[in-house]
Design a protein around this nucleic acid. Structure first.
Lengths: 190, 190
DNA sequence: TTGACAGGTGAACGATTGTTCAATAGACTA
DNA sequence: TAGTCTATTGAACAATCGTTCACCTGTCAA
C-alpha cells in the first residue's frame, strides 16, 4: 500500500485546517467511497508512527506537525535526498521553549553583546524566574536601566560584563533586578 | 465572565492532547454540568479571536498555539506584567520557516564562520533551491567537501569567504553545488 | 483452475458531536 | 419588592463520529 500520498494529503489538511480529518474526510481526500478504506490506511499510518489515537479513538498527529528535517552537520556534508525521510524531525517551538509559560522574547538593540554574536535586531528567548549561573547571559535592570550582559557573581557582589571591549563592566550599586536568563538566540537573515 | 481560566485550561488540553476539546470535554475541564455553559464560553473566546470554527462547526485554534510573547526591546526595558497580555505573540515555527517544505536544519561544526557569530553546535535553518545573493551565507559542496561560507559572485567566478581570518577563501575550481542559503541561526544556551 | 491475499465497497451500530431550547439561581438596580 | 441581567442547568435534536461487519473485486502464485 502506498502511504506517501495519503500522508501528504492528511498533512496538508492538518496544516490548512489545524485539525485532523475524520475518516469520512480522509475518504474524500483520497477518493475512497468507503470509510473502511480510510480506516485501514490510518491503521497503517499509526503503525508507522505518523499518527496516533486518543483514548477516545480520535486521531492526533505525531510526526505530522510543522517540523524541520535535521539533516546532519555542515562539515559532515549533506545527506542525499534518499535518506531524508528517515532523519529526525523537530518542532522549533518545542525545542526552543524550555518553559513555555515563563519564556518571552526580546528584540536586541545596541552593540554591547557583539562579541557573543548577539547583534541588533536579533531575537533572544528569555526565561524569567530562573537563577542565573556565572557566565549566563542575563537581562537585568541596573539602577533603572535595562541591559543584556554576562552574569558573574563574585564573593558578595555581582558584575555584569558586556561582550564588547568598548563597553564598561557594570557594578550594580543597588536595585539589581534580573529579568531572566537568555536561553536561546535567534538570528533571521531573510 | 472570566475568560482567563477557561483559556488556560483549553490551551493546556490542546498542548497535551494535540487537539481541541469538545464542548463536553470543556464542560468537564471547567466543572460545568451543562455543555451549553461551555458553548457560551467558547463563543466569547471566538469573539476575542482565541479560537475559530470550521465550516463544520468544529473548533480550531487561532491564538492558542505554543506562542511567545514578544515583550519589546532589551535596551528599552521590560514591560510591566500588566500589559503583557496585549503584546504580540508569535509562533517560532511560522516565523522561522520561510518555506517549510524546502527548509531543513543543520548542526554546525567547525570554526569557519566564527566572526559571523556562528559557532559549533549552533543550528542553522537552510532553504534549498534558493538563489544566493552576494553576502548571503550558503551551504555549499566544493570539490567534494561541504562547508558553510559567505557567498560572493564576481564577474565570472564565485568566491566562498569564511568569517574567520584563519581560514582561506575558497575559489571552487569545478563542482560547486549550492545546498541552500542560511535563512536563520539558532543558538541554544540551555 | 484454484486459492490466497490485498484493496476497495456498502451498510450498519452505538456513541459522541455541535447546536438550540426552555428553565433555574443568584446578583444587582430601581 | 419587583424587575433585569448574567451564569448555569438539563434535556433534546439531527448529524457526524469511530468501528466493525460481510462482501466484492482484481492480481499473483501454485
Amino acid at each position: 500500500m502506498d502511504l506517501q500520498k495519503p500522508l501528504e494529503k492528511i498533512r496538508k489538511f492538518y496544516h490548512q485546517r489545524k485539525r485532523l480529518p475524520s475518516y469520512r474526510e480522509i475518504a474524500e481526500l483520497l477518493n475512497f467511497k468507503s470509510v473502511n478504506a480510510s480506516w485501514r490506511v490510518v491503521k497503517k499510518l499509526i503503525e508507522q508512527g505518523y499518527l496516533d489515537k486518543d483514548s477516545q479513538g480520535k486521531l492526533i498527529p505525531k510526526k505530522l506537525t510543522h517540523e524541520l528535517k535535521v539533516l546532519g552537520t555542515v562539515a559532515a556534508g549533506m545527506p542525499t535526498l534518499a535518506n531524508q525521510e528517515e532523519m529526525d524531525t523537530l518542532s522549533l517551538d518545542e525545542y526552543l521553549l524550555t518553559n513555555p509559560s515563563k519564556n518571552y522574547m526580546l528584540r536586541v538593540i545596541g552593540q554591547s553583546m557583539k562579541d557573543a554574536g548577539i547583534s541588533p535586531n536579533d531575537l533572544v528567548i528569555v526565561e524569567s524566574e530562573k537563577e542565573p549561573l556565572n557566565g549566563d547571559i542575563v537581562v537585568a535592570e541596573v539602577d533603572g536601566d535595562w541591559t543584556m550582559k554576562y552574569f558573574q557573581k563574585r564573593k558578595n557582589e555581582v558584575v555584569l560584563i558586556p561582550a564588547n571591549k568598548d563597553y564598561p563592566n557594570i557594578y550594580p550599586k543597588q536595585n539589581l533586578r534580573i529579568g531572566g536568563v537568555v536561553v536561546s538566540l535567534i538570528k533571521k537573515y531573510y
